[in-house]
Design a binder for these strands. Structure first.
Lengths: 147, 147
DNA sequence: CGAAATTAGTTTGTGGCACGTACTACTTCG
DNA sequence: CGAAGTAGTACGTGCCACAAACTAATTTCG
């Protein structure tokens, strides 16, 4: 195990490595609260939305048939709730419960802290640059993506 | 669906969003070759290594018991092979087959192209900055990480 | 209005992925 | 040699994702 690899990475490798690093933070933080990454994303999407199953699936990039189980498990844990849509008898609106919102906020705080720690070796200027550059990349999404 | 969200993101959100964007590129590219993200990582780790199951698991952050199935499925598809270790009768060495190496290279090429496309709106200076900053973050890993 | 087409969601079946536990076989230590 | 440790596998559980088939409500349109 090389403890000092430190060879300069190209852009692609650096971004791929960085994405795995961030995903690991998410995964580990989630695991501490018994949440998978998709469950974290689920709670995140529901932070300021109240979508139906289909719309929820499109936000997460998942098929509607995947949503049933995902929402079902989260509902069984009391994190989200299904409500009948007032305008469409077929549809269901998914929203956070207070418990789910609390858990989401707790995870977001931990993730925020840990990622901030990762960027601590950077200067304020570098951090601002990184934020701006990353924001530029995600602001040019070939698909829908949304925030 | 807001088509023009464009509100400035903070550092944490930008990095998380970016990581999902990169992961989606990996996931979609992999799917086109019937590879999951962990299988892509598996092939990537084996590019210049010939580890045992345990070491392989530590590179991927997985338990050894997860490796049996992962390697088994890849082996069944002819992408990797198990060989008995000459020095340890308990151990097996996992390595890429020519087919596996070819598939890995093909995926790497597509991923490289797509991520490069993502960074196309950036200037050369910005791209260099981004590479350097991302490299700095992954070069400060609290765990083992490696390349 | 009422039948046909569409749409939202669930169910079912298949398979990958990850873990913990228990097990086998080999190695190493005393 | 026997005991302890190590490498890997087997098994059971559960989450995640999909496709296809299904139900029920809505919309479309003759």
């Amino acid at each position: 195990m090389r403890t000092e690899p430190a060879q300069p990475l190209n852009t692609v490798d650096a971004l791929v490595q960085l994405s795995f690093l961030i995903q690991r933070v998410l995964s580990e933080t989630g695991a501490e609260h018994d949440l998978s990454i998709v469950q974290i994303r689920l709670l995140g999407v529901l932070r300021d939305r109240r979508p139906g199953m289909l719309e929820l699936g499109s936000h997460l990039g998942l098929d509607k048939s995947s949503m049933t189980g995902l929402v079902g498990r989260a509902e069984k844990r009391g994190l989200v709730q299904r409500s009948p849509s007032p305008h469409d008898g077929r549809a269901v609106l998914v929203s956070l419960t207070p418990l789910g919102r609390q858990l989401m906020q707790r995870c977001a705080a931990v993730v925020g802290r840990r990622i901030t720690e990762l960027t601590e070796p950077l200067t304020a200027t570098q951090r601002a640059q990184l934020t701006q550059l990353a924001g530029a990349l995600v602001g040019t999404p070939p698909l829908d993506a949304d925030g």
